[in-house]
Amino acid sequence: MLSNTWHPPPPGWIKINVDAALKCNNMAGVGGVVRDEKGRFLLAFGAYFVHWDISQLKLMAIFFLKDIVKDWMFDYQGLMIEGDNSNIIKALQIEWKKRKNKDIIDGRLAFLNDFKQVLFSLCSRNCNKLADICANLGVYNSFNWVDLWDKDNPPSFLSCMKEECDALRLL
């Protein structure tokens, strides 16, 4: 059974929650949030796309990570990528396991080879609220936030982040 609140990654790891949003006019966005073991904000992103398939968009959100990965992320013990689509997460888990067996891996995931460890994790929609906010904002404007207190960060994002941290007593 999936949890109803966001949980931090293991000590020494970072977690990236990803999501996608699709509007009826095919305007779409992908987005995500990077946090550490203490729930501290490290980065948030959103990007605009035109598409028609929400499952493909959720997969594109993971492929898009190659565009936001920073050198400092490789210093962590591992990377947990979390999303709320069970079919996508399961497929990625299988694909990643093939990589360990030296089978062919989707080239769009090759950027993950530079991490010490990678884990794909399924979460409930309630645990993915911040990524959902980023994906919906990405529908209208691409962004990359590295400062939580930037004036461009919407109050809904900050409020949701505070709510999640308060629930885990992280702040």
Rank of each mutant, 00 (worst) to 15 (best):
P9K: 11
D84N: 07
E37M: 10
A167D: 04
L122K: 03
L22Q: 05
G29A: 06
K102I: 13
L168A: 08
K102S: 11
R108W: 05
L42F: 07
Q117K: 14
M73I: 04
D53R: 06
K116M: 07
D150H: 03
I88S: 07
I16P: 01
L158R: 07
G29F: 13
G46R: 01
I133C: 00
V146K: 09
D106R: 12
F64I: 11
E37G: 03
K151C: 05
W72F: 10
W145P: 00
N17R: 11
N113I: 10
I54Y: 06
G32T: 03
N87C: 10
L22C: 04
F64Q: 01
N4M: 04
L42E: 13
R99I: 00
W72T: 11
I105N: 11
D114Y: 07
L130N: 06
L130R: 12
V34T: 12
F143L: 04
D114R: 15
Y48N: 13
K70Q: 06
A110W: 14
Q93L: 09
A21W: 00
N17P: 01
L171R: 15
A44V: 14
I89F: 00
K70S: 06
H51K: 02
I88C: 00
Y76L: 05
N136K: 15
K98Q: 10
V69F: 00
Y140C: 10
F111V: 01
S55R: 10
K129L: 13
D84L: 14
S55T: 14
W149R: 01
V139N: 08
L119Q: 10
G46P: 13
Q56T: 08
I88R: 11
F120N: 01
P11Y: 07
G78H: 06
A20E: 02
R99C: 05
I16R: 03
F74K: 13
N17D: 00
D71M: 09
E163N: 10
M73W: 06
K102E: 09
K100A: 14
L170Q: 07
N87Q: 07
R35E: 12
L119C: 10
Q93R: 01
G31H: 15
K116G: 01
F49R: 04
N85E: 04
L109T: 12
D166W: 14
K97R: 08
G31T: 13
G39I: 02
M73N: 09
G32R: 03
V34I: 14
S142F: 03
E37P: 02
S142T: 05
W149K: 01
H7M: 09
G107Y: 13
R169C: 13
C24I: 15
V139F: 15
I89T: 05
L137Y: 02
S86C: 04
P9N: 06
K162R: 05
D36H: 12
V33Q: 02
C134A: 15
A61W: 02
L112F: 06
N25P: 02
L109W: 07
M80A: 04
D166M: 12
R35C: 08
L119R: 14
C123W: 11
N136A: 08
D53T: 05
D19L: 04
D19S: 07
